[in-house]
Each structure stands twice: as structure tokens, then as C-alpha cells.
Design a protein around this nucleic acid. Sequence first.
DNA 1: AAATCGGGGTT
DNA 2: AACCCAGATTT
Length: 360
Amino acid sequence: MTLFSAGPFQRRLLRWYTAHQRDLPWRRSKNPYHIWVSEVMLQQTQVATVVDYYRRFLQAFPDIGTLAVAELQDVLKLWEGLGYYARAANLHKAARQIVAGGKKRVPRTPETFGRLPGVGDYINAAVSSIAFGHPLPVVDGNVKRVLARLFLLDEPVNRPSNHRVFLEKARLLLAFKDPGTFNQAMMELGALVCKPGRPLCDQCPVASFCGAHQAGRVTDFPRRLAARKNPHHHLAVGLVKKGNRFLIVRRPATGLLAGLWEMPGGRVEKPENPADACCRAVLESVGLTVFPGPRLARVAHAYTHFKITMDLFACDVVSGRVKRNGYQAHHWIRMKDIGQYPFHRAMHKAFAALAGALPP
DNA sequence: AAATCGGGGTT
DNA sequence: AACCCAGATTT
């Protein structure tokens, strides 16, 4: 391939970015903490999804000190529905580490910032370049796609060992004068023009530099390894009532949906019927012997690596008192209290089904 | 190096 | 349905 000239590429890209960039709330701020929060929320999450969460989060936690003294429950409540809840826990933990070290601001050097929980190579490069001007290239999903097309890179983008290939190309292109703006321009190009399905090459400011475009092979890139099929799981959970209250439990601090609340339950094992599975799972997880009532709801939900069907059964307590196994906490609450707790999406679907089945 | 970790939008 | 998204951490 001919020698790639970074200067003209950068000028074309940056001129396009100046004219076409979206007006996003975090681009109106120079506060490093704001930039940081936005980058964490934007991890594997589209811009349109993040905007409202970003505003609400910064209204509640306007600075690192405020976040550090907050309860994790309250941080998770503001993260509710956004997914990848370890991001919230790590951000919260990082804020506490900064305050515990006698500071109240984002570390200005990549070496220090990069040691905080939840700060990997991408977020370190993004915050360090955008907020502090450090010349570190960012490589996210958008940038990988742009680079694969620009340089006809055959390496599958979803193979971890190929990451360094993309990082080296990004480093070659990086504009040292204003690396933060350049990095954002590369990502914006991927999001608005160099899109996965139908790239808008006729609107692309750097099409004349693009190997895939010149070769008429834009849709051949990026290459990717085939994903394997997702398994399906059947879950059964109980609406366990005591008077006018029902039981909710808080999931463990690590793993799937860490720290979120739900109704107790578990997997439906092979020969089992869902109602029996519900009773068994309630007994195993909270120590209550319950008798199954009617099925109140059936919810379908998809996670990244599996799908679930979740059945919700009314349950009457026969005997026992709560003895938790695995869960962090339990509360007996009324339906009007559910807004006080962070629940995962499948649980919200169940609540919605209940509201529809039992109109007021 | 692969698996895990959400949820929603797009095609 | 499969793919994709301003990835990080654990195994």
C-alpha cells in the first residue's frame, strides 16, 4: 500500500467533524469528571440511550465528592435499565478511592487515572485525550470499523489478540495537536458515516484515503468471527405475599445484575414443571416453604449470551422464616414502593404485566 | 484468549 | 434473528 499521509487525512476529518458533529451534552462540558461519566455510560451503549441517564446522573452526583459519599443503592437506582451494572459500581468505587486519597478531582496523568476500577485502555485514552490533551489513540468499535476499511485489515475485529493491530493504525493517524478532538472525530465518523450496514461513502470526507472504498469492497470490512448461538433458560420466580406486602431480594455484589433487586426464584430444571421449580427455588434461596398459586405473568428477555423465559407465580407462605442463601438482603414491600429500589429489566417487565393483569 | 457482563437500536 | 454499540474484568 502507498505511504499514508496523516496530515491531509486529519485535516479532512477534522473539517468534517467541525461541520457535522452532533450536539451532545458531554461535548458542552470541559469538566473531566463529566467526560469520564459519559465515557463509562457510553461503553457498549449507544449515544441516544445515554443522554438522559447522563443528565440525571450528573444532577444527582455533580462532582466526585458527591458520588463518593452516596450509597451504592442510590447510584444503581440512577443506572437502572442502562445495563452492565458493574460500570456503576466501579465508578462509585473509583470516586471513593480518589476521595480516600485526599483528592477530589480526576487524576490528570494516564498512569494514575488508568489504575482506577473500571478504567481500561479505552476510557483512559478517551478521558486523558479529551479532558487533558494527552496524545493517546482511542480504539472503540467505531474506530475499528473505520480502520478496517481504511487499511483493508483482514484481522477479525472481535478477536482480542487483534486489538493491537488496530491500536497501531490508530496511533499512526492520531493528530497530536488536538488528540481529544481527533479521537472524537474518528468515532463520530464511524457512528454517522462509516456505519456497519450501509456506509454513506458519498458523504465521507476521507473516502479518497479509504482502501475498501477504492477497491469497491466496503461491505467486506470489517471482518468478524461468527458468534455462537445463545442458550435459552426457563426461570420461575415467586410473588411471595405476607399481608399486603411481598418479598424482594437483593442479588449478590458480583456477577450478573450485581446488587439489583428481584423477586426470589431460580432455574426450572429439566423434568420439573415451572410452579414446582418456583417453590423449590424459593425454599432454597430464602428458606420459605410456599404453595404455588396461579401464574401471574410470563416474561421474555434477552441477555447478551442467553435468553430467558421467566414465569411469575403467586405464592402463599406455608411455613418458615426468611433465611437467605446467596442474596445480600431482603425486604417486604408494597407495590407502591418498587420505585425505591433498582430492579433489572426482566423484573420491570413482570411488574408491567402485573399492572396490566390486575387493573386498579 | 475466551467468557462474562445488559439493554436497546438497526437491519 | 443477528449484529452492533465511545469496553472492562475475570477466568
